[in-house]
Design a protein around this nucleic acid. Structure first.
Lengths: 219, 219
DNA sequence: ATACAAAGTTAGATACAACTAACAAAATAT
DNA sequence: ATATTTTGTTAGTTGTATCTAACTTTGTAT
């Protein structure tokens, strides 16, 4: 049975190898992502290798084994199911679910998560719009279109957010945006990528960085 | 913020000092209860003392401080609320809830437990019949009558069980007993304390040890 | 009242997961 | 193709939680 720690490494590595556009999975990236020194990462990688959870050679590439990948996907499944529970049944806000789900995802009980899934009615997406992996390990990445890919005149619908930090999510909610919001791109400035968007009669300005963290479906 | 470990020590100490009939709270008892060496217990007690969670002097008495007590009661509250959730909403059996609740009780989120309590409708008792401590730290011990206190001819109702181990709970369920079962004491043998009891038309023999682990309300 | 047993403590070792500092390998740039 | 920068590793230390073995204190029994 894996420790919370080992699980966190696998999840981080999955995030860096499978979920990011370009493959930014090196010892340093992992270290930065986990807020840990590169030396500690090297030590843990050796340990995970003996358990056949990562593929790793000294100074070499860094990847999850298929076992490691399966565990990471399962953690993401648990995380997103718990987020859904907190949001739908325990009155948690969008920006509050992540932190608690980080703890709940490490609870060890097959029955618990199967029954939770059933209780929730086998949901497809979590409160941030991300797809919940299936019991069989099926993992779907979201379509990669972000608001920043669009141009003036385009129309779209908010389907998920990339960044799950409290700061970002609170800002999104404060502006008045939520899952399924319909957005018109009114203007886009080439020099800094900032945009003016309209929704529900409002018109606001957003930075390029903000636009890059909002996943949309073009309409 | 306390670690899972520190919390487990506080809960164990609470169990040994507050919940047991006679005060069996020494370093050795704690060690046995937690399945660790007395030496490790001594080390942890020193640490807990610096945090003002226990009252403890070298070779001296062993007690929780009021802070320590409050934390222990809060853990019991969390434990029993989670047990109730698992039992009522996630189709867990009587004997399955304890193990998972042992993990869930360590999740850190005030809001989580308050909302869970609300979701469950502020339950009074958990699936084993134990009283769930209040948000304000109110802790009620169960009335101490056990089946073994009764004599032939007495009638009673099962209100809780003392032992929460899988082995015991499964045995209770197998026999056909459950919370609120009405029991007639048919016979009691003085030489070994074993009893013959009747309920729902059945008649079975139970050992003194079994009888000591069943809390009842005389009717 | 002393000796013995029980209970509790200390000292020293191990495992884990982190750190810093120094070093080595690989990648890049001139 | 060599120097420089970036990336990754090793060695040695720290803190936590555990252990065993040896020792000390307290309690009990004769």
């Amino acid at each position: 049975m894996l420790t919370k720690n080992e699980e966190d490494y696998l999840k981080a590595l999955f995030h860096l190898t499978e979920e990011m556009e370009e493959d930014r999975a090196g010892v340093n990236q992992l270290a930065e992502y986990l807020n840990i020194s590169p030396a500690s990462v090297t030590a843990m990688l050796k340990k995970l290798k003996t358990k056949d959870l990562v593929e790793y050679e000294r100074y070499g590439k860094l990847e999850l084994s298929s076992d490691g990948k399966a565990i990471a996907v399962d953690l993401i499944r648990k995380h997103r199911l718990w987020e859904t529970f907190l949001y739908k049944y325990l009155n948690f806000q969008w920006d509050e679910v992540h932190e608690v789900a980080e703890q709940l995802e490490h609870i060890k009980s097959r029955k618990l998560i199967d029954q939770l899934d059933k209780f929730l009615g086998h949901p497809i997406r979590d409160p941030h719009g991300d797809i919940i992996p299936g019991k069989d390990g099926t993992y779907h990445v979201l379509p990669k279109t972000t608001l920043s890919d669009l141009s003036a005149g385009d129309k779209c619908k908010l389907i998920a957010v990339r960044d799950n930090s409290v700061a970002f999510l609170r800002y999104v909610a404060e502006i008045g945006l939520a899952l399924s919001s319909e957005i018109d791109v009114m203007d886009k400035r080439d020099f800094d990528g900032s945009m003016e968007i309209g929704f529900e009669g409002k018109r606001i300005n957003i930075s390029a960085k903000f636009a890059e963290n909002v996943f949309v479906e073009v309409m």
